[in-house]
């Protein structure tokens, strides 16, 4: 069997994080899982090259984004639903018992209503702790654009949450 242990370690460290990012991009659990599988297929061909990648986090998130875009272009069904409102559980309460299920629903609804380019920047900034320079590299925009997408996204999120209160 080809040694996939290095790839397995990458999955253990990044699998859930990449899935979350893909979920933010695609707003569908099934699609995010499918794209994650496609991504690991592609990585399997490049296992040797991965050893020489300096910034693995940046590389993997860029690769995940490219894979998601490829999927969106290929999938007609996805294009049809991209513009429509689609609620997906992007966040969970986890072990925090102070968070009510309604609050989780509310934040997920608000996040889902953001444009995809704002949602992905929020996920990369808040949950991955990446700088705007790193986010810019992944999303192929200028750092200032990444920063303003984040700022507008957060403002919109705040206003959506206030509207629901």
């Amino acid at each position: 069997m080809q040694d996939t242990s290095a790839l397995s370690r990458i999955y253990d460290e990044y699998g859930a994080r990449l899935y979350h990012y893909l979920l933010a991009m695609l707003r569908s659990k099934d699609d995010a899982e499918e794209v994650l599988q496609n991504l690991f297929m592609r990585l399997a061909y490049k296992q040797k090259r991965l050893e020489n990648v300096r910034n693995l986090t940046g590389y993997l998130f860029s690769a995940a984004r490219n894979e998601a875009i490829r999927f969106i272009r290929k999938c007609k069904r996805h294009r049809e639903i991209m513009g429509n409102f689609r609620n997906v559980a992007l966040l969970e309460s986890g072990d925090n018992r102070d968070i009510l299920p309604e609050e989780v629903d509310r934040i997920n609804r608000a996040l889902t209503m953001l444009p995809q380019y704002q949602r992905e920047v929020i996920v990369l900034k808040v949950y991955e702790g990446l700088s705007f320079r790193e986010i810019a590299r992944i999303t192929k925009v200028f750092p200032n654009t990444a920063a303003s997408r984040y700022r507008y996204g957060v403002e919109k999120l705040r206003s959506l949450l206030q509207r629901e209160e």
């Binding site: 999955y11 859930a16 949950y127």
Partner: peptide, 28 residues
């Protein structure tokens, strides 16, 4: 807002996803 968002956990993939992915990778 960032602090507020950090209260929540990112959604996780299905538990069997890793096995499915690696089965497919090996087959490929």
């Amino acid at each position: 807002m960032e602090e507020y968002l950090k209260k929540f956990q990112p959604a996780k993939p299905s538990p069997g996803l890793k096995d499915n992915i690696f089965r497919a990778v090996r087959a490929e």
